[in-house]
Each structure stands twice: as C-alpha cells, then as structure tokens.
Amino acid sequence: MSAIAANPAPRRSPFWRAVISGTGIVALIYVLLYALYAFWQPDALSVYTFTDLVNNSTPLALAAAGETLVVISRGFDLSVAGVVSLTNVLMAVYPLDGPGGALVSLLMCCAIGAVVGMINGILVARLGLQTIAATLGTMIVCQGLALVILDAPGGMVADFVTYTLTDTLFGVVPIAGLFLVAAIVLWLAFRRTNTGIGLYAIGADEQSARFSGVAVSGVRITAFVGAGILYGVAGFMLSAQTATGNPTAGTPFLMLTFAAVALGGTPLSGGRGSLVGSILGAGTLMLLQKVLFSGGVSSFYTGIFQGFVLVLAIVFGNTVARLLRKDDAR
C-alpha cells in the first residue's frame, strides 16, 4: 500500500490513459522512429523492408513478451537465453520438413519451454528460491544441454520453416507478424482471466494478494510456464530466421529482452505493464539498431550501443513508471 495519495487524483478518460501508458509512449516512439527511417531511406515503406523488420524483431518480441509475464509478477527470468539456445539447436539438428514437421517442431519448442518454465516456477513458488538465482541455474543447464546437442554453430533448419515463416501472406502480411498477433490476442484474453488479474495482484503485493484469496504459487507457476512457452516459440522463429543452429544463439536475448520490457513501459518492480508494450519495445530496439547502423558504424561497436540502450531503457522505464504512478494504468 505504498502509493496512496491523500486525495483522489483527477480521473482521466480510458483513451487518454491508454495514450500516456507505457504502451502508448513506446508506440509513439516507434512511429516517430519509423518516420525518421523512412525519411532517410525511402524504401523503408516498402512491403519488403517492413517484412524484413518484422521478421528480425519477432524472436526478440516473443521472448520479451514472455519475460513480461514474469516481470509483472515481480520476478526476473534469465532462462530465456537457455531456452532460445536449446530450441534453436534442436531445430537445426533434428529438422522436420513440411507443414506437419513444422507443427511438430513448434509443439516441441513449446513443450521444452513449458518444462523449463515449470521447473522455474516450482523452484521459485514451491521451494522458495529467488527468481534470479533459480532461473540462472536453469539457464546454465539449458545452455549446457544446447552445447551437448551441438557443440559448435552448424546444422540446418528445415527448408519449409525457413522459407514459409519468413514469407508474407497475400504478399502484404508478414507471417511472422501473425505469431505476434496471436501472442497479443492470447494475452488480451489472459489478462481477463482470474489468473491474469492475479498476476498483477501478486506483482504489486504478494502478501495482500494472498490475503485477498489469490492462489499465489499457482499464478506464479503459470507465469513462468507461459513465459517458457513464449521463449520456445521465440527460439522457433529465430531458427526460421537464421536457418542454422548455434548453441549460444540465446545469449544476446538475455540483455535485449530486459531492454525491450523496460522500453515497453513495464517497470522491473512488477505489478504493472503490458505484453503489447514489450513487443513494441522489441520492435523499437531492432528499428533503432537498423536506423543507426545503416549509417555504417563499425559493427565492433554494436555492444556499446546495446549497453547504453539497455541502461537508458531502464532509466526511461523507471521515469515513466514514476510519472504514471498516481494515474494508474495497467
């Protein structure tokens, strides 16, 4: 009960609340950035460029979406790096071609993510480990498994996956984008379930949530499992992008997902935020990288850029959260 104002703040209309929420702000940033990109590179408005951008952003966007579930419940999930690496090497070492094969691969990726998420959830909710510590452990184990399956970059992802998932539907809709739309639809439904509302409740104040009757460990485990599944799909989509396997493919995700979550207006302190914001945050990060490095900055210095963006995203997220605190917008 930390943020109780002495007097009720003036109410704002739902529309205005959505605009000034973290999601609204990051959407605005994305549009402005895209306009800038189009200004410099006129072909930015072509279907090809847009599809390319969506394809590039989808794995990170899905991973950030998963991370958001855990962050809203007040936790950190480092296993994202492990799950993405593990599913990526599996896709490359055991390719299954054709639509049926793709579906089986997708289900396998989801299942791996779900198992890892379940383990995380049990370690945290039932055995009382800190989220960072528990997920650090599972991340390491998953990375080890990825190395056992494939000890150096190599392998080939099934052609059907590689070609179909990077293609467009009717020549305009990027197929990868459909995965994002599916994730958003599922999310919007989920946040209207008891568990979805419970997720925000335990993120704000676990004790109060328990006293209000929320099944705290059940909700927490659900968040980790949901996150794991999304990481699995992220690994699946990454494989479609890269067409090959790399046992350390997930490592860059660790940092970028947190940057995307923070940029999307989900404070790392939990209880607030939206998966949609994180997806837009991921898109913004990839777009930003594209805009800046189309200028030809040496790729040696990509890391400097990423490090600063990460810190700035968190500081930005903290600031937005502080500004919005009085005018609650989930």
Binding site: F76, L78, I132, L254, M255, F258, L268, S298, F300, Y301, T302, G303, I304, Q306, G307, F308, L310, V311, I314, V315, N318
Partner: peptide, 26 residues
C-alpha cells in the same frame, strides 16, 4: 540510476567487451 545489479553489470560487460573488440580490432 536504480538499474537492477544484474542488468547494470550486464550492460557494463557488453560495453567493455565491445570496446576491447574495437580497440584490438578483433
């Protein structure tokens, strides 16, 4: 800046690694 420790050190890490890479040209 109230950045969580593991994120802040991760950011430092990638910046430093990048500087080392650029400085030695690989």
């Amino acid at each position: 800046l109230k950045v969580p420790p593991f994120i802040m050190t991760m950011a430092t890490s990638i910046v430093v690694a990048s500087v080392a890479l650029g400085y030695t040209s690989g």
